[in-house]
């Protein structure tokens, strides 16, 4: 962002008087990306979705479903809690939730960084496709279900069936794991993983020691139906 843009006063949307449509419409203008403040979100859905420019969006309060959905380039910070599917299918940029997130946080996200300051509910990082998610608290059941690429970092505990039907995503958990899902196993933490985790914690501004985490990944036993019969399926 240029110095002149930084100096410009932020745009302000009050969602008690302005519509979500007006907000998103403005955020879809690729020119004039800068700081945007959103007040009184009052749990509304689809706030700051589909941005494709380096906006810096600050949302003061709780948001509903799909906040910052399919984000590209922008930084979206929520000073509150998030409903279902925050940063779903994010492509790039950063989404920071200071409170907790509901189900399917970061679902299918393909790039960028999602940070959840509190806990994330069930299916955090479901079908993850390349983005990184760092949760300071704990995550609910079936987190990283069918996750394909990217990393899920959990500083607290993980619920039942972590990483069920996992593909190539990497899971790092500091606390207890209630149970592992099908084909998900604990794996050795090598130097490359410690390095990766250190970088992720730093990017998320989380003060934690990578050595306290364990790594989980796919056993790759479900990748093919039954190899003996591969020619006849």
């Amino acid at each position: 962002m240029s110095a002149s843009q930084t100096a410009a006063p932020p745009l302000h949307f009050d969602l008690r008087t302005d519509t979500v449509r007006a907000l998103n419409s403005r955020l879809h203008d690729p020119d004039g990306a800068g700081r945007v403040q959103v007040s009184n979100p009052d749990g509304r859905h689809a706030i700051a979705v589909g941005i494709d420019a380096p906006y810096e969006v600050e949302i003061d309060g709780h948001v509903g479903y799909y906040c910052a959905g399919m984000n590209k380039q922008a930084t979206v910070r929520v000073h509150g809690n998030c409903g279902v599917g925050v940063a779903e299918n994010m492509m790039s940029g950063r989404v920071i939730v200071e409170g907790s997130a509901s189900q399917a946080a970061g679902a299918t996200a393909r790039g960028g960084l999602l940070v959840v300051g509190g806990d994330a509910s069930a299916r955090c990082g479901i079908s993850l496709k390349g983005a990184n998610i760092v949760v300071r608290g704990s995550v609910g059941h079936m987190s990283a279900f069918m996750a394909q690429r990217g990393c899920l970092v959990v500083c607290g505990d993980a619920g039942e069936a972590l990483g069920d039907s996992l593909y190539e995503a990497r899971l790092y958990v500091r606390g207890e794991v209630a149970s592992l899902g099908a084909d998900c196993i604990a794996k050795e933490m090598r130097d490359e993983h410690l390095e990766q985790l250190r970088a992720l914690l730093e990017a998320a501004e989380v003060d934690a020691d990578p050595a306290d985490f364990r790594r989980y990944g796919s056993a790759r036993q479900l990748y093919n139906f039954k190899i003996d019969n591969v020619g006849v399926y």
Binding site: H45, A46, V49, G50, Y65, T108, S127
Partner: peptide
């Protein structure tokens, strides 16, 4: 492929999902 959508369940969620898609594509 998954048989259920990853980020919504049931008709009420679907309505919100569609709202999101409308917003992303400016209706």
């Amino acid at each position: 492929s998954a048989c259920r959508h990853p980020d919504w369940t049931g008709p009420d969620d679907l309505e919100i999902k569609i709202e999101e898609l409308r917003e992303i594509t400016d209706w």
